[in-house]
């Protein structure tokens, strides 16, 4: 299988002291849907921005490590290289559907521009009629029954779900190798959420894209993804296939997340939750989950546990072996 994305030793800090990501390593392969799950402050959105090459827009950000998308070293690429890979190489669907489209540009112009860019990259000459045809086809693929009407509209005239479908149509027109979706359904109501998720999954498979799906909602991730990466305080805590992770979570944090999903079949009467609260930048020498963990031991705070392989999966917890990260890479 072809590797689309490789993240190596990625560290990101905001300003002088605020750390967002620590030593993040993972791969994503062609056709795969990988979910990044974490609560707010876990660094999941920063990870999305880093992969989407948008980190440098914020001047206060410092980063090290490598992000390789399709053979391009994103963090060290020139502006020209980045321009070539954006759109047709990577594309991002953002969280707020009402803010992610230019309010002064009609839906038709938004989509036509996307198709024009991708045909230009592929050195295909297209006339306005062909563009219009492609745009209408894309709109039909994202379940608009009246594409001609939708084309004339402006973003504020559409609902949140419709705007997100426009974003997906944009992805269809550009056919990026890697699609990053940063909480694309969080702002939508539950029914619309399910529709958009189903559609997203269908399109990714049909158009042969790969998807990195960022969410705080483990239940949503389990519906959609092939693999799941659990992030806590900027550290990957667990990586595994959806099936194994849901049925047999390794990390105490993942267990907590799964227990707090409301589930009819578990007739326990009371919703479980993880005790305590995540406090950003609370200085802990060791496992960041230690203050909230049910099975904590003294070994947990002797250093940051390593991400170790066990039963063919990866987990960062001393229960599965007492091993620590070298302090120099994570001290930041």
């Amino acid at each position: 299988m072809e590797r689309i994305l490789r993240v190596e030793d990625l560290n990101v800090t905001y300003g002088e002291s605020t750390r967002a990501l620590r030593k993040v390593n993972f791969d994503l392969f062609q056709g795969e849907i990988v979910g990044i799950v974490g609560e707010s402050g876990s660094g999941k959105s920063t990870l999305g921005l880093a992969i989407a090459s948008l980190l440098a827009l914020n001047k206060k950000v410092k980063f090290s490590g490598k992000v390789n998308v399709n053979g391009v070293d994103i963090l060290n690429a020139s502006e020209e290289q980045l321009y070539r890979i954006r759109g047709t190489g990577i594309f991002v669907i953002f969280q707020d559907p009402f803010q992610s489209l230019d309010p002064l540009v009609s839906i038709e112009d938004h989509l036509s521009e996307a198709y024009a860019i991708s045909s230009d990259r592929n050195n295909v000459k297209v006339n306005p009629e062909q563009i219009r045809k492609a745009v209408i086809t894309a709109l039909k693929k994202v379940n608009f029954t009246n594409p001609e009407v939708i084309l004339k509209k402006y973003p504020h005239e559409l609902s949140g779900g419709q705007n997100q479908r426009i974003m997906i149509a944009m992805a269809i027109l550009e056919k990026p190798k890697l699609l990053v979706a940063d909480e694309p359904t969080t702002a939508l109501d539950v029914t619309t959420q399910a529709q958009v998720l189903t559609l997203l999954k269908k399109i990714v498979k049909e158009e042969d894209m790969s998807l990195l799906f960022i969410t705080h909602d483990l239940a949503v991730a389990s519906m959609l993804c092939d693999r799941i990466i659990v992030l806590y305080d900027g550290l990957i805590q667990e990586i595994g296939s959806v099936k194994e992770t849901i049925s047999d979570p390794l990390h105490p944090y993942t267990k907590g997340l799964i227990n707090s999903i409301p589930n009819e079949s578990k007739k326990e009467g009371r919703l479980k939750f993880i005790k305590g609260m995540y406090i950003h930048n609370e200085v802990i020498d060791g496992c960041p989950f230690y203050p909230r963990c049910d099975s904590r031991k003294d070994e947990c705070i002797k250093g940051i546990p390593s991400l170790i392989e066990t039963r063919g999966r990866k987990v960062r917890c001393i229960i599965y072996g007492v091993e620590y990260e070298r302090s120099d890479t994570t001290a930041k």
């Binding site: 989407a52 948008l54 827009l57 502006e79 321009y83 070539r84 954006r86 759109g87 047709t88 990577i90 594309f91 991002v92 953002f94 969280q95 707020d96 803010q99 992610s100 489209l101 230019d102 309010p103 521009e113 996307a114 860019i117 991708s118 990259r121 974003m167 944009m170 550009e174």
Partner: peptide, 15 residues
């Protein structure tokens, strides 16, 4: 700072 600017950048529109 708005999101749609990032969308435009990600679309591959020239900066």
């Amino acid at each position: 700072k708005l999101d749609f600017i990032r969308t435009q950048i990600m679309k591959g529109t020239k900066m």
